[in-house]
Amino acid sequence: MSISLETISRTRMAYVRQIGPYGPANKQAMETLKNWAHVQHLLTEASVLFGIPQDDPATTPPESCRYDACIVISDDFVFSGNDPVKEGELAGGDYLVYRIAHTAEAVMHAWTSIPGLVRDHGHAIADGPVMERYKGELLLRHQCELCIPVRKDANLM
């Protein structure tokens, strides 16, 4: 496990949205995205993918939860018009990046640890979704990252 503070820049992305309860359907959305990205020659060891749950399942009915499977694309990438993906943008900002093992157990533990980790690092959770980030070199080591939007906590200063 490693934790760092990172400013993520504005990023153009292609994404597939899954609407419904979080779970196995999220994996299907990611597979649809990967298949499209492979055909477009975008899926390489240097690719960066995100899994972004857009809603809090504690306050959003399961049938309304949105999950976006995303891949970073260049500003000059041109969509064909028949693509099964949509174009989107990550606004960017400051994130606490928590590197973890890419296992169901480690991810579940990490999600429950977020409030304490953020507080222990002198920050508060900012508006925006917590994102799962997947990079080729990390996946080869069976790791992924949780990117937690943060701001300095004035109460801790």
Rank of each mutant, 00 (worst) to 15 (best):
M1E: 11
M1A: 07
S4A: 13
E6S: 06
E6D: 11
T7V: 13
I8L: 10
S9F: 05
S9H: 13
R10N: 08
T11N: 07
R12D: 12
R12P: 08
M13G: 03
Q18E: 08
I19Y: 07
P21R: 15
G23D: 08
P24C: 05
P24V: 07
N26Y: 06
Q28T: 10
E31T: 11
T32V: 13
K34W: 14
W36I: 09
H38Y: 09
H41G: 07
H41N: 15
L42M: 14
L43H: 14
T44M: 05
E45A: 12
E45Y: 14
S47H: 05
S47D: 05
S47M: 07
V48H: 02
L49D: 00
F50D: 01
P53H: 04
D55K: 04
D55A: 03
D55L: 06
D56G: 01
D56P: 00
P57W: 04
P57M: 04
P62C: 09
C65S: 08
R66Y: 12
R66H: 15
R66P: 01
Y67S: 00
Y67D: 00
D68R: 05
D68K: 06
S74D: 15
D76Q: 10
V78S: 01
S80P: 02
N82Q: 13
P84T: 04
V85T: 04
V85M: 00
V85H: 00
E89I: 10
E89F: 13
E89R: 13
L90P: 01
Y98F: 14
I100D: 00
I100E: 01
H102A: 02
E105G: 01
A106D: 08
A106F: 13
V107M: 04
M108A: 08
M108E: 12
H109F: 09
H109K: 14
A110R: 03
A110G: 08
W111K: 03
T112I: 06
S113R: 15
I114R: 02
G116E: 15
V118G: 00
V118H: 03
H121W: 09
H123N: 09
H123G: 04
H123S: 06
I125M: 14
A126L: 06
A126G: 07
D127V: 11
P129G: 03
M131C: 11
M131R: 12
R133I: 05
G136V: 09
G136W: 12
L138Q: 15
L138P: 07
L139M: 14
L139I: 12
H142Y: 11
Q143H: 15
Q143G: 08
C144H: 02
C144D: 03
L146G: 00
I148H: 02
R151M: 15
K152F: 08
N155P: 03
N155C: 13
N155I: 11
N155F: 12
L156G: 07
M157D: 15
M157T: 13
